[in-house]
């Protein structure tokens, strides 16, 4: 049996653990010619001092936290709302078609969705601004203006993901004991009261569990989405840690500084994710394996 594990373990060691030791380049003045394990010059915490002296670093951290948090909060709210509303629908066919439609975007890449958004949100020829124009609203630069960009990211993230989460919550609702509803109905509880006193408490565990687990994502504002939709004029409100790491590292070849930023992010995320799993275990005996 140990032999069966060998191929997977080798790949894990090579492609997950070797790069982890590679974070040492955050403490070096890395010269790519000498290679990952070459004789590099060690500079202690210089790279970290450099990062924190960058004028925009806190803005980027702030953007990341803000966009990620709002995505989590509104995404959850929307999904729970839709799960509750869909649960009230008696027509199975309607229920199934609606689910099919709302979670289709979940399976498409941000490339396709971004391409669609760039077209639909275009200020001059986009469908949405044409529509708003009918009501006399002036064209909105959803992707080009700092006050709109974060909103656009959050709304489109919900568009892609809420259907998926709705189905997760619906699965939780389906697991509620029907006898509870019957008992509530016998006691004269209205539909609204049944939702409030039976359905929501029945979902409470999965809601809190997902909330706790999402703590670990608080530094993931969505690289795939933002990278494909942002532009220099919205860096002020839209640049996030991951996009900054990419630009510093691969476009400007500041390998060490970029790794240092990445390491700080992974470090803090590590603490958050570990805490979230710990809480999930303590509160719900939730274990992945």
């Amino acid at each position: 049996m140990h032999l069966m594990l060998v191929p997977g373990l080798i790949l894990i060691l090579l492609f997950a653990y070797l790069p982890m030791t590679g974070v040492m380049i955050a403490f070096q003045q890395f010269n790519p010619v000498k290679g990952l394990f070459g004789d590099q010059k060690w500079v202690g915490l210089d790279n970290f001092h450099y990062i924190f002296s960058m004028p925009n670093i806190w803005r980027v951290v702030g953007n990341t936290l803000l966009i990620a948090t709002l995505k989590i909060v509104f995404g959850m709210f929307t999904a729970i709302l839709f799960a509750l509303l869909l649960n009230e629908v008696k027509n199975i066919m309607f229920k199934r078609v609606t689910q099919t439609v709302i979670y289709f975007p979940y399976f498409l890449s941000w490339i396709i969705l971004s391409g669609i958004m760039i077209d639909v949100l275009s200020p001059s020829s986009g469908l949405i601004n044409q529509f708003l124009g009918v009501f006399g609203i002036k064209e909105i630069y959803f992707l080009g203006e700092n006050k709109w960009f974060p909103f656009t990211m959050i709304a489109s993230d919900i568009w892609k993901n809420f259907g998926f989460n709705t189905v997760v919550y619906l699965a939780a609702i389906a697991g509620i004991d029907p006898a509870l509803y019957e008992a509530a109905a016998v006691d004269g509880a209205s539909r609204w009261k049944q939702t409030w006193h039976v359905t929501l408490p029945g979902m409470r565990m999965i809601i809190v569990l997902l909330m706790v687990l999402s703590l670990g994502n608080i530094f993931d504002a969505g690289f795939d989405q933002i990278f494909n939709l942002y532009s220099p004029q919205v860096y002020q409100s839209g640049d996030i840690i991951d996009t900054m790491v990419y630009r510093m590292g691969l476009l400007q070849s500041q390998y060490s500084a970029s790794t240092a930023v990445g390491l700080l992010k992974s470090g803090v995320s590590f603490v958050m994710i570990t805490t979230s799993y710990y809480l999930a275990y303590r509160l719900f005996r939730y274990r992945l394996f």
């Binding site: 653990y17 070797l18 790069p19 590679g22 974070v23 990952l36 590292g249 790794t259 990445g262 994710i273």
Partner: peptide, 18 residues
């Protein structure tokens, strides 16, 4: 060994260099 990779990763640059 497997689970830890879900908690921590080396990040973009070390992966790229590897």
């Amino acid at each position: 060994i497997l689970f830890f990779t879900m908690l921590f990763n080396g990040g973009l640059i070390p992966n790229y260099i590897l």
